[in-house]
């Protein structure tokens, strides 16, 4: 039997939290925002194939920042949960809220029970039908969930970028404006720089799409066109 030195629970949680925070702040940011036709997720991502943004289900999308292996694991778990639920019940019974709750439970128990917390933050976004409603759930490494309104920035320079976006954001943007502004905000911190379109990954949940699956990845040319 091994003996662990006594550490006060407050200290333990604080250390873990700090560790996770540091890991998340090292990476680059993801922006999620509402635009006229739905939800846009946009990230700075030098890789064209290792995605941070992905489809989960018909009206649900996912974005993660932090450690790739960890949010990829969460992404796959989300797709499995959603597909199983949709098969066992009905496709319209798969809801972002349930997914956010499942993520929250999983991350919370990892945070308290495992030696190392996950260094991730994730977004679960959903558009509903004609009503025009959207929701964005923001789940942290310790399992806390918030329901975001309008826009949110996670990872990297999240605080500074949130401030930058707050001054510019307006509801009802068209897609090109939303993409252009989001790229502009990402390029403003840590120091102002140029962000070429091939460094940008973007996906939308577009409720005007006639298909059942509303998620669509934006092609590099489309991002290029919107940005210029």
């Amino acid at each position: 039997m091994s003996f662990m030195p006594y550490v006060a629970p407050e200290q333990l949680m604080k250390d873990r939290s700090e560790y996770a925070h540091k890991g998340i702040a090292r990476g680059r940011s993801v922006i999620g925002l509402e635009y006229a036709d739905g939800l846009l997720f946009l990230a700075e991502n030098p890789s064209a194939t290792l995605h941070k943004i992905s489809e989960i289900y018909d009206r649900i999308a996912f974005a993660g920042v932090g450690k790739y292996s960890e949010f990829e694991e969460l992404r796959i778990a989300g797709i499995r949960l959603a597909d199983l639920r949709g098969y066992a019940y009905g496709r319209e019974d798969v809801k972002a809220r349930d997914l956010a709750n499942a993520y929250s439970q999983a991350l919370s128990s990892i945070f308290t029970q495992q030696l190392k917390p996950y260094e991730v933050e994730i977004l679960v976004g959903e558009v509903d039908g004609e009503a025009g409603g959207t929701s964005i759930y923001h789940v942290l490494f310790d399992g806390s969930v918030t329901d975001e309104q309008g826009f949110v920035v996670i990872g990297g320079q999240a605080e500074r970028l949130t401030e930058a976006l707050r001054t510019r954001y307006e509801p009802g943007w068209d897609l090109a404006t939303a993409v252009r502004t989001a790229i502009g905000v990402l390029a403003s911190a840590p120091e102002p720089r140029d962000l070429p379109a091939e460094q940008i990954e973007a996906g939308v949940l577009d409720r005007t799409r006639p298909q059942r699956r509303k998620f669509r990845r934006l092609a590099p040319e489309e991002i290029e066109r919107a940005a210029s």
């Binding site: 194939t49 995605h51 797709i79 597909d83 098969y87 699956r213």
Partner: peptide, 16 residues
């Protein structure tokens, strides 16, 4: 057919 459709969709989402 339903299972097959889901099989293709699931594969597409997991692997990209």
């Amino acid at each position: 057919v339903k299972l097959f459709q889901l099989e293709l969709e699931h594969y597409e989402k997991i692997t990209g």
